[in-house]
Write a protein that binds this DNA or RNA. Structure first.
Lengths: 344, 344
DNA sequence: CTGAAAGCGCTAACAC
DNA sequence: GTGTTAGCGCTTTCAG
């Protein structure tokens, strides 16, 4: 067939007429090499199509890569799922000469989060943070990046920042998907549609809302959209708010829950006795959402796979740290739709 | 923290009082070791919780693992996608000391397929075959397995066989999902529902049909299910058959396409002028299906991710060959639902 | 039946 | 600035 033999570091060193160590230096930008030598080595690397062997690199590496996941504090089931996924990566990470820890920070406070991030300097090689889109947080991220730390955002992005990657779904699209499903499930019935979200300040929530309103307005104009209720992602708040909504709107035919606090919404729906008549769509396939789908209280769940997100974050962080290649297709987080029948 | 140090081969050899080579022999069942020694080594392995380091193993390994994918011949877009995915794995596989080739065989003929499989003895370490559930094929698979070859089925399973794994979706569940969507999308309108499948002889098709009929019967009893049409997965056949169906059934409100040949179905639907009024659900997000979703001719596409299936097959095959551990969660193939808005 | 020894391709001390 | 060298944890001859 073709030239099967992969070029090794050795080959590069030999044809460039330098030593292994020098090639290693230019490959890792460690400095202390004459510009001319750098160029020579780089051209040889190019010409030979050299790619480092990740297995060999990992085997030889002395110090571990330290990853940290910064997640919201509080009692959010989905966040707990992320947390658990991170912990379950430990054996795999150990094989990759890496460790990961989870830290919790108050995501509803830009001050708290940015302060927390600032305290991470020098203690980690990569930080994966569930973002809060605010200038302070952006600055904290940029500070870490300037320090050579690999920073990635998870679930909710911080677009203006220097983070190397966002791991999560396209939330506008997710909102559009929710609207399509809700509109089609409601069918020709007239009525109104309620929306419950955590806060307009959370970027992922705002984006979902945007997409949802887009499609509802354009394609299901006969349904009246009520103005969104903010429940701060907590069931203690969403439950009474939803109950109130149901009471005030006997014509309600659909409900879109953008964020967390679904246990409260579910409880309110069930107590109203109208669960069967109202199409309810929510996010994240937590054990409760699963139950709600099975009993028919929820009609569809839009999901982002917590396991996939965590694995992807780890792979991408390690790849960024070691210069390995990634399979982009494998790292795209899909917008899953779950109905009662296709739950995993 | 805890005992961070992973035990190495060396540790095992030392505490068992034998050499590296001997430990290697018992670990790989290479034979030529006294039973007592085997037992001693195994107990030490157990006690120390020894896990081989895959990076080191790969690095040291001399000969490549040879994988072969046996896919159906013919012009099926989804199969072409699988084919292309396999080819695109080449660089990654090379890093893992492995190669993969694709072979095409006539899947509609048990004789041809089993003959093909029989010819693979000794030439490959793992074969991944898109199954045809037939005694001849089953025997051919078992023959390979008896020879020490790792065999896995892809997309369509061969349950009675000795294959080590099936990589694909649960097709009964997929059929149920299609029914849920179709039923809800049709809504309260009365009418009949048509079904087009490749052949009742294909296990995946039969399973989807089963799941579909289950849910339609139980939950959408007002819709009349027409008996399935067999189009052999080819558009030349599905197109006239669908056209005929549409002509004979002016009351048709839904259409479920279980297999391939969707281009023909789409053409017939469009020419009938009733595409907008009929809910059409099909499988596999090929470029054509994508187009059909965008134009609204198709209402939903149930998908299995070709890229994920191929990557998963490769990982599982290599893991089986080298005794590595897998992350089961990562290998589960999901039943994707795609609507116009959440296409990747 | 078992052991010794030579690498696999890279990293990271340490020399010069 | 650059080169030498000793491993990382395993596989695989080749001797005994």
């Amino acid at each position: 067939m073709s030239t099967d033999e992969r070029a090794t570091l050795h080959d590069v060193a030999r044809t460039a007429g330098v030593s292994l160590a020098t090639v290693d230096r230019v490959l890792h930008g460690r400095g202390g090499v004459r510009t001319r030598t750098i160029e020579r080595v780089q051209s040889v690397v190019e010409r030979l199509g050299y790619r480092p062997d990740p297995a060999a690199a990992r085997l030889a590496r002395k110090n571990q890569s330290r990853l940290v996941f910064v997640l919201p504090s509080g009692t959010n089931t989905f966040v707990d799922m992320l947390d658990r996924q991170v912990r379950s990566m430990a054996p795999w990470l150990a094989e990759q000469r890496a460790t990961a820890v989870v830290q919790r920070a108050d995501v509803f406070s830009p001050q708290a989060l940015s302060g927390h991030l600032a305290g991470l300097h020098g203690r980690f090689d990569a930080v994966i943070v569930m973002g809060l889109d605010h200038p302070l947080v952006r600055a904290a991220i940029d500070g870490l990046v300037a320090d050579g730390v690999v920073v990635m955002t998870l679930v909710s992005d911080v677009p203006g920042s220097q983070r190397s990657r966002f791991v999560g779904i396209e939330n506008v699209t997710a909102g559009r998907t929710a609207a399509s499903l809700l509109g089609r499930f409601v069918g020709p019935r007239p009525g109104s549609v309620g929306i419950v979200m955590g806060s307009r300040g959370l970027r992922d929530h705002a984006e979902r809302l945007f997409g949802f309103e887009q499609v509802m307005g354009a394609e299901y104009g006969t349904l009246q959209l009520l103005s969104p209720i903010e429940g701060h992602d907590r069931s203690e708040r969403t439950e009474p708010l939803t109950a109130q909504l149901l009471e005030r709107h006997p014509e309600l035919v659909g409900l879109y829950s953008i964020g967390a606090g679904n246990r409260g919404i579910q409880a309110a729906l069930e107590r109203s006795g109208r669960a069967a008549k109202i199409v309810w769509i929510c996010h994240e396939l937590t054990p409760h959402a699963r139950q709600a789908l099975l009993t028919g209280v929820a009609d569809a769940v839009i999901n982002q796979d917590a396991g996939h997100e965590v694995r992807s974050s780890c792979r991408l962080a390690l790849a960024a740290l070691s210069g390995e290649r990634v399979l982009p297709e494998q790292e795209r987080i899909r917008i899953d739709i779950f109905l009662r029948d296709n739950m995993p």
